[in-house]
Design a protein around this nucleic acid. Structure first.
Lengths: 201, 201
DNA sequence: ACCTGAACACCGTTCAAGT
DNA sequence: ACCTGAACACCGTTCAAGT
């Protein structure tokens, strides 16, 4: 990598961070190139796809969040750890509006530049989940993917101006769905009338 | 309205329905005009905004869903009615991928052509919710907006290819969060360690 | 009244040409 | 090696001109 190329790379990341924070995740790459005062093609070769740029932009935070899960796993009770991490994860996806959909897509697409980072995040969440399940504090029928989906759902809610004022409250609602309150376990999966059966395998 | 204008209007709606079903909610209006073999400006005057077109497209289904709530309110138990309607609502938002975000935006924007339809839907859900709350079967801290947000969240989950296989399961998870299992009420709002308090006012 | 394509200002992506 | 703008194929929206 030549010296000027290295410089451009760093410059582009800085400008991109600013632009994404200002305009949102939907900023055009043209706009970023314009702000960076570089040719569009220059940006495109450093970051061949939109995801590649986002990955570079998010990697630091994603790694921190993944590591946070490992720390929490050791420090606190399984239940507290899961909820604390969940709160951090939701806070993260709310930093850049629209980022959750991209991450969800990256999770399914192995070719995506963001795939590895997202899959590590899923695994970290899954481990916290399993600890809670081993302690009998967390619904046993939830997977790491489910947890990711619920984080994404809360991120989506936070992204909608009509719902964002309720997103803290709905965090509590969904958190309560993940946890098992006390000795009552089974009756939460299927509500009273058993013949209705609203579809959880 | 002139005869040819009337014809164009109906033709555009038919073609739009097809196009949206095929390509998704993100079809360009140009594409629709092209398929309809009409000028772009013709479409734009019949439907000045994207929402106006979507409103015309969705109104029939939205009205049906709103009325369904009224029927369910009388027929079944408050709890069954709410869950049955929730299932219908989630099924509806999953018909056209991406429609939930547009509806959420319309809910906040009084100027949107879709606003009235969406607000009626919210009210219908709120009524079912209130019945369940009156019976002590539904979390008392949920509003009609919350219910709409949770429907949207499930729609979002269904829209993500990585999560859509889990969306039926997560419907059950979220449904269980809305309902109150038995005599235990309070302990679901705040999980065991009271000093953590994950933010539900 | 209603329809229409040209025009404008955008977008992502490609590629031949420059340093 | 790396950078770059012109070119291509899109998009939504506006508007003067046609029937």
């Amino acid at each position: 990598l030549r010296a000027d190329a290295k410089e451009n790379y760093a410059h582009l990341l800085n400008i991109a961070e600013q632009a994404v924070a200002e305009v949102g995740i939907g900023v055009s790459v043209r706009e970023i190139a314009r702000r960076a005062e570089l040719g569009k093609a220059t940006l495109l070769r450093h970051f061949p796809t939109r995801e590649a740029l986002l990955d570079a932009l998010l990697q630091r935070r994603l790694k921190a969040l993944t590591q946070k899960a490992e720390v929490l796993e050791q420090l606190a009770s399984a239940e507290e750890a899961l909820i604390a991490w969940l709160r951090d994860a939701v806070a993260f996806v709310r930093v850049y509006s629209g980022v959750v959909s991209m991450m969800a897509a990256a999770l399914a697409d192995q070719q995506s530049a963001l795939h590895a980072s997202c899959d590590n995040l899923r695994k970290a969440g899954a481990r916290l989940l399993e600890c809670g399940q081993a302690d009998g504090k967390v619904r046993p029928d939830l997977t790491g993917e489910d947890l990711f989906a619920l984080i994404g759902a809360l991120g989506w809610i936070g992204d909608q101006p009509s719902f964002s004022t309720r997103s803290d409250h709905l965090f509590g609602v969904i958190a309560s769905a993940i946890l098992i309150a006390g000795p009552a376990v089974k009756d939460r999966v299927d509500p009273p009338p058993p013949q209705t059966g609203h579809g959880e395998s």
